[in-house]
């Protein structure tokens, strides 16, 4: 049962590349800019620019390209589904279909048509999802440790304190959740083994049966989680925790010149996407 233990949230790859050293807040903003740029892209050229810059980013970050692609596995079926939907359901009044099949189904005929614009849409949508996921995970999860990510979240959401959003508390909750995920996974593992030793069977039977088999795992897990939460709260109080008020920090986030340069590059990328959207020399676009 080492499988459970290997799951780590976020898959942070420690490293020393320039991407790793960027300020996490800057990386958050960069990701958002890039994602917006993805949705502005309208033609082949803008997508080429975006794809090339994404590949460049992966190369600079020294995260193996294969790892990034593997990270897309969970969305593979969603990708396939959206591609198929876009391919077959896009219709256009301006152009004639590239293909049209008439499939007789009993008394009526089912017409399948594929338009040029449908193919483009399918490819672009897939590309958008791929780029969005890979770039944001390179920026945020692969090269940024969860703890600095939480810190930067707290920092970026800082202005929301004015409207009484408990920013510090949210960040603390996320930190504690991250801290306890491996512990709870380990615990689940232990409980499952204990129940197996008593003859529980998690692997066979119908879905309902297997779901039911998990109840004797979840109940003790919940009970012990509450106990842990209680212990932790007491331990935190004993260490003088009283919320974000008057708290200092060991690590303070600081912007550097490289963050500014990265931001300039991202704005330039954004501008070139917008620019290329208009010229569209080959006429391939939406």
């Amino acid at each position: 049962m080492t499988v459970l233990k290997d799951i780590t949230l976020g898959q942070y790859f420690p490293g020393d590349s320039i991407i790793h050293r960027l300020d996490p807040r800057a990386k958050m903003i960069l990701s958002i800019l890039y994602i917006v740029a993805i949705f502005f892209a309208k033609n082949v050229f803008s997508f080429v620019i975006l794809t090339l810059s994404a590949i460049l980013l992966v190369l600079i970050s020294r995260i193996p390209l294969l790892t990034v692609l593997r990270g897309l596995k969970p969305v593979f079926f969603i990708l396939l589904f959206t591609m198929v939907i876009n391919l077959f359901l896009t219709t256009s009044t301006e152009e004639s279909p590239l293909f049209a099949w008439n499939i007789p189904v009993f008394s009526w005929t089912w017409q399948i048509t594929i338009y040029r614009i449908g193919i483009l849409r399918a490819i672009f949508t897939a590309l958008r999802v791929i780029l969005l996921l890979s770039v944001s995970s390179v920026f945020l999860t692969y090269t940024t440790s969860p703890i600095t990510l939480t810190d930067s979240l707290e920092d970026l959401m800082g202005p929301l304190k004015v409207i009484r959003v408990p920013v510090h508390d949210i960040a603390m909750i996320i930190t504690i959740a991250l801290r306890f995920i491996p512990t709870l996974i380990e615990e689940t593992d232990k409980i499952m083994n204990a129940q197996k030793a008593r003859g529980a069977d998690f692997a066979t039977g119908s879905l309902v049966r297997r779901a039911k088999a998990l109840i004797p795992v979840l109940v003790p897990l919940f009970v012990s989680s509450f106990k842990r939460a209680d212990d932790l709260a007491i331990a935190m109080e004993c260490r003088c925790y009283r919320g974000g008020e008057g708290r200092t920090k060991l690590h303070k986030l600081r912007y550097h010149l490289r963050d500014l340069l990265a931001a300039i590059l991202m704005v330039a990328l954004f501008a070139s996407v917008l620019f290329v959207n208009h010229i569209n020399p080959l006429g391939i676009g939406l």
Binding site: S145, I147, T175, L178, R228, D231, L232, A235, M236
Partner: peptide
């Protein structure tokens, strides 16, 4: 386990 708060 129940008295450590941070992930580092």
């Amino acid at each position: 386990d129940n008295q450590l708060v941070a992930t580092v």
